[in-house]
């Protein structure tokens, strides 16, 4: 097998084709092409969960997970922005518990912008975006402490979670909070399913911002993703067929497998 330090021709073609499909689909959607997204229960529940906190007159807690600034966290912040806009309209407080110092300034900025966008800049309180600790379990227990002291009504957990996920959600549940969680990492999904009211699974996580905002750019991207996925599944089927028919040593099989 060849070196994977740099792309081979197959990867170059595949990458540019996939990117072209996604970007093309975004442009089509921006020009007004209607696109369909199926219902995702975990995301539909966000509005109800925010409403519950308003009814109870208690704050909402949002955790963007343990990861630093990466794609998973940026998506979590996009969801946070949406939640703040909903909550701000009903004058409900949102406390953001941060683990990564690199996420902290970005989360602070996103939160302030979201309050501005909702037309309620006066509701923004800098101390509600809190750096808890960059130590995994100190973060877990510290966040549970915030849940208990602030009597939160709703917990939103979107982002990269690891072993602390169960500490957060089992305690959140014991405190009587409604919990909505989403994580692209399959290892934590079982724990979330056992303890949360709604869970967003796998790549539904990346569909979140499109689903919530229905912005053409995002829905276009989502549809583009699905087309790419369908093509990749077809390619995998072709690969299986070729390997079975020609054997793993054939130049076509090797080339498709990333070699050469």
């Amino acid at each position: 097998m060849g070196s994977l330090e740099h792309a081979n021709w197959f990867m170059r073609i595949a990458f540019f084709a996939m990117s072209a499909i996604i970007v093309g689909s975004v442009i089509l959607a921006q020009r007004g092409r209607a696109m369909f997204i199926r219902r995702i229960p975990g995301l539909t529940a966000i509005e109800d969960a925010v409403g519950r906190a308003t009814e109870m007159g208690r704050p909402i807690l949002f955790s963007p997970g343990l990861d630093g600034i990466n794609i998973v966290t940026l998506q979590a912040l996009a969801i946070l922005t949406y939640i703040i806009k909903l909550a701000a309209a009903q004058a409900t407080r949102v406390i953001v518990a941060i683990r990564s110092p690199t996420v902290y300034p970005v989360a602070e900025e996103s939160t302030r912008e979201a309050y501005d966008a909702a037309g309620r800049p006066e509701l923004y309180r800098p101390e509600d975006v809190r750096f808890i600790s960059d130590e995994q379990f100190a973060y877990g227990l510290g966040t549970v402490g915030v849940m208990a002291r602030e009597h939160v009504a709703t917990n939103f957990l979107f982002g990269g979670f690891y072993a602390e996920s169960l500490i957060l959600t089992e305690n959140g549940r014991a405190l009587g909070a409604v919990q909505v969680a989403g994580c692209p990492d399959p290892t934590q999904i079982p724990f979330f399913i056992a303890t949360c009211d709604y869970v967003v699974i796998g790549d539904e996580y990346y569909a979140a911002s499109a689903y919530l905002t229905r912005e053409p750019t995002l829905t276009g991207s989502l549809v583009g993703q699905d087309i790419v996925k369908a093509i990749l599944i077809a390619l995998a089927a072709v690969g299986i067929g070729l390997t079975t028919a020609l054997g793993p040593g054939h130049f076509l099989t090797v080339w498709l497998g990333g070699g050469g």
């Binding site: 097998m1 070196s3 994977l4 330090e5 072993a163 990492d185 399959p186 290892t187």
Partner: peptide, 23 residues
């Protein structure tokens, strides 16, 4: 895998906590 096993073919073995292993 991305930086050592893939590029240089160095054999790799691993040990995980039970919760991580499935993936």
């Amino acid at each position: 895998i991305g930086l050592i096993q893939g590029p240089y073919g160095t054999p790799l073995a691993t040990a995980y906590t039970a919760v991580m292993a499935p993936i």
